[in-house]
Amino acid sequence: MEININTLPLKNLPSVLAFRRGVIVSDAPLEYGTEHGVFPVPVIRHGTMGTQNVNEKTGEKGDLETVAKGERDVRNLQVIESAKTGQGMIDLRVRFTLKALPLADSMYSCANSKAENKSDAEKMRAMLSDFIKRAESSSGLVEVSRRIARNIVNGRWLWRNRLIANSVEIFVTAGEKEWEIKDALRVPLYHFDEYSETEKEIGDLLAGGFRGNGDKVAINVLAILNLGVTGSTEVFCSQNYEPDNSRSKNSGDLSRSLYKLTIFGHEQQSGVQIVGQAAFRDAKIWNALRTFDTWYSEYGTIQSPIPVEPQGASLSMMDFFRRQKESSAFGLFKRLNQIDPDSQEGMYCIASLIRGGVFGDSEKKRGKEEGGEE
């Protein structure tokens, strides 16, 4: 049956609607440079003694009587992991690889669990196919690609290391092409205007990958940071989430666990337990690269981009900025047949497809919205 996409929007998304992430991103290992070469930044497990600073209820008289009575220890004894460079450190180096995949291959599944709703899934497939065809030739896709390029060359993906650096150089290679950004700290973080030629060229390469044009070229990125200090210095990689109830069982009361890669052939330092090489996990790199949603309604006030998320979730501000159905990916995908890829809504939809994820409406929710349940 031929689907006419020029009709009213869908009332509900299919119960199963999922998209693959439109990029391949590698982990980003941390290294440090010395006069004698480049070495992995080790993750060191060690003990530390801090102080108790949890905001707890005080006694009836408003004082901390429990401390004086010995019921609460002032000390906070912990086992933690830290990422530290070696004594001869001159600079910090972080690298990762990125590759754009065709938008046309982004859909993983689109179906309804109930046979009577099968037509909705068929219409959704047709709407997606039409939108992607229009997006492939749109200036909206070019803009989204250039925004990713800006977040590559401004070093947003370095996270806290960027904030403590005196200077950041970034080198990007793809095939036989090379780009050098000598002062990444001067590339804008909070807006996406006035792109440099470097950003345009890297963006065009990404856009070609999203269109499925030619070879799937990998983009290799290296950042070299001058931290303004030499010697053994703490740097910052991804941190693991450790549920409280798993610490004593699995990690020996480890209070802070860092993401790390295996270091092959690396000798243990005397008296120090080295448990791996510090790294950013791929998800943290990708979160930074897709932090370019300036199309949400509060941007004019907040003046800060947020990551492309279905409901505009921002961990830094602990809020959802697209909680309204009309502005969320869930709401916009229902009317893709009415959305111009060059519009702000269209560019957000393109970016959401590249982000990937699960967007379906459950059958229970469908029943409620259609009046099938009390």
Rank of each mutant, 00 (worst) to 15 (best):
L10R: 00
E122A: 04
A313I: 15
Q269L: 02
A184I: 10
Q273L: 14
P307G: 07
S137K: 13
S328R: 10
S246L: 12
G22M: 03
Y348N: 01
G371N: 07
N154I: 15
G252C: 06
Q344V: 03
I285M: 12
S297I: 11
D183T: 14
M49K: 05
N112H: 00
G86D: 09
F333T: 02
Q268T: 07
D319Q: 04
V38S: 11
L254M: 06
G208E: 15
S343R: 08
C349N: 11
L254C: 08
F19T: 00
L261H: 02
E143I: 12
K364A: 12
V67S: 12
D340E: 04
V221I: 15
R134F: 00
I132D: 01
G360E: 07
R323Y: 09
L205G: 03
T291W: 09
I152V: 15
T173F: 15
A207V: 06
D120M: 05
C110W: 06
G70Q: 13
F96V: 03
G346S: 04
K200E: 01
S113D: 10
K334C: 08
Q311W: 07
F19W: 01
N12C: 15
G155V: 03
D215F: 05
R256N: 10
I90P: 01
G356I: 12
R95I: 04
C110H: 04
K99L: 00
D244N: 11
N117R: 15
F321M: 12
V168A: 07
T97H: 11
G70T: 12
L222K: 15
R134M: 03
L103H: 02
N112C: 09
T48A: 03
L189Q: 12
R162K: 14
L289R: 11
V217T: 15
S314N: 03
T51D: 12
K182Q: 07
L189C: 08
I80R: 07
L163W: 13
S343G: 02
R125Y: 00
S138I: 05
G271T: 00
A283F: 03
L128A: 01
G228D: 09
N12E: 13
D340C: 02
P14M: 00
Q52F: 05
G360R: 09
E180A: 14
S109I: 02
V153D: 00
E326T: 10
A313E: 13
L10F: 02
R150T: 10
D183S: 13
T294S: 06
T48G: 09
S314F: 02
P102W: 03
S304I: 14
S362D: 08
S137E: 11
Q268H: 04
I24M: 09
E374T: 15
P307E: 02
T230S: 13
D130Q: 11
D27L: 05
V235K: 00
R156W: 06
A104L: 08
E197K: 09
R355T: 01
S137D: 08
R256G: 11
S248Q: 13
R150H: 04
R323Q: 09
N287A: 08
S137A: 14
L30R: 06
S139M: 13
V144Q: 13
G59T: 09
G372P: 02
K99N: 14
E35H: 11
C237R: 01
Y195K: 07
G140L: 05
V221R: 07
T85D: 01
M49F: 04
I80G: 04
N112M: 00
L332S: 03
